[in-house]
């Protein structure tokens, strides 16, 4: 990589001064060491300190800098600038209210996450030492516990766009299955009851946008399928 100019088209909206959002064309010169989209955003912000976005760990584990990049949701810190077609079009995550520029109000997303009781439920008195779990049982949690709650998946899901208030969404359902799959959890039945609803779970139509965009390579659709399998197993 060398020094290069990169063109951007960025969604801008400041509720304090703009009547309506607009797309701003802006370009920035990048150093050879600038690999990731977040590096470019940092450079852009040095030029114009009003450009607003969330960011923290810059290594893809905190889930702050999710945005819509050239039409596809992803993390700025894990996206190679040179893999993107220019002008690079940056928009906030779709389907959530925009607060400012690339910052969205994630209340609804977290509300759904919280609605599945995202914590281990085990009412036995805690033993002196760790609860035992076989490596095979532990393996069931792989591909589930790694979720970083960036919301790339839920905000790419048409079912979540139409019913963000009622459909739990891929991230929340992945978390739900994380606890259902945990051998230490004792609330499987309640968790299934909690999801048996035409909106909460069955709005998932296996469109699989969630799988397509997950920056951690997780598969919420598969987890949702396993929840349905368990419901079937319980019902028949």
């Amino acid at each position: 990589m060398s020094k290069r100019m990169v063109q951007f088209s960025i969604y801008r909206y400041d509720p304090d001064k703009d009547d309506a959002p607009y797309m701003q064309d802006i370009s920035v010169e990048l150093e050879p060491t600038d690999r990731k989209l977040l590096d470019a955003l940092t450079k852009l912000k040095a030029k114009d300190d009003a450009i607003s976005y969330r960011r923290s760990c810059r290594e893809g584990v905190c889930g702050s800098d999710a945005m819509n990049i050239n039409g596809k949701n992803g993390l700025a810190c894990l996206t190679d600038i040179d893999s993107l077609k220019q002008p690079i079009v940056l928009r906030p995550l779709p389907g959530l209210p925009v607060i400012r520029d690339l910052i969205v109000d994630m209340t609804q997303f977290f509300k759904q996450y919280h609605s599945i009781k995202p914590y281990l439920i085990n009412n036995d008195p805690p033993p002196e030492r760790e609860r035992l779990q076989s490596p095979e049982d532990r393996e069931e949690l792989n591909g589930l516990y790694e979720c970083i709650l960036c919301a790339c998946c839920s905000t790419s899901c048409p079912s979540f766009w139409w019913n963000p208030d009622k459909f739990v969404g891929p991230a929340g359902l992945l978390a739900a299955y994380r606890f259902i799959a945990d051998t230490r959890d004792q609330a499987t039945s309640e968790r299934l009851d909690n999801l048996e609803d035409p909106y909460r779970l069955f709005r998932c139509h296996s469109i699989m946008n969630c799988v397509d965009v997950c920056p951690k390579g997780l598969n919420p659709t598969k987890a949702i399928g396993k929840i349905k399998d368990m419901m079937v197993a319980r019902a028949v």
Binding site: N194, E196, F202, V232, A235
Partner: peptide, 15 residues
């Protein structure tokens, strides 16, 4: 108020 929890859906999904 947003109400969910109709407790159906599985039968339809199977059907």
């Amino acid at each position: 108020r947003i109400v969910v929890g109709a407790h159906y859906g599985l039968k339809d999904w199977i059907a």
